[in-house]
Design a protein around this nucleic acid. Structure first.
Length: 153
DNA sequence: GCCAACGTTGGC
DNA sequence: GCCAACGTTGGC
């Protein structure tokens, strides 16, 4: 049973354009256990990933990516001086794990948060819940397809 | 810029 | 193990 996901990113930090330019990237820097568990335990190669821009003027899903590598230890947790260095993480049992994602498609127009909120089929979508801060959330197949349909219009 | 929601830390 | 304090996220 294929799983679907939504990943949030602040475009000032890493945008869909950055992902398109890179082609593929390690999704390092996730320091939340729930999000880590999704990556480490549940995401597998080929899973579709909606790429969402947060903390910007037009919020919404800007494109489609997919998981391109299963979770490995986050490379930044052992880098001295790095913002995401974690001195408590043991190299023999790393705390932080992350998948790689690959760019699939940048939408011509983003599917905006406003439009998503008005779509009845997305009423239960986690990213739309007030106060939701989790940067990686599971998405149902139906929600995924609804967003993809909205992107084509 | 504000502030509510949430996760983490640390004193007890 | 509780919980207050604190820092961060992220929509508005």
């Amino acid at each position: 049973m294929e799983k679907h996901w939504l990943i949030k990113s602040e475009p000032d930090v890493y945008s869909i354009e950055d992902l398109e330019a890179d082609g593929e990237t390690e999704w390092w820097g996730i320091r939340n256990y729930q999000a880590r568990n999704f990556m480490r335990d549940e995401m597998s190669i080929g899973n579709p990933v909606l790429f969402y821009h947060s903390n910007t003027d037009i919020l919404g899903v800007y494109g489609l990516a997919e998981v391109s590598a299963e979770a490995r230890p986050d490379s930044k947790q052992f880098e001295e001086g790095h913002r995401y260095h974690d001195p408590k993480s043991d190299p023999d049992a790393p705390t932080w794990w992350c998948v790689h994602i690959r760019h699939v498609q940048t939408f011509d127009e983003p599917v905006t948060r406003e439009a998503m909120k008005e779509e009845p089929g997305l009423a239960d979508m986690l990213v739309l819940k007030p106060g939701s801060r989790l940067s990686i959330t599971p998405v149902t197949k139906r929600e995924h397809e609804t967003v993809m349909t909205m992107a084509r219009q």
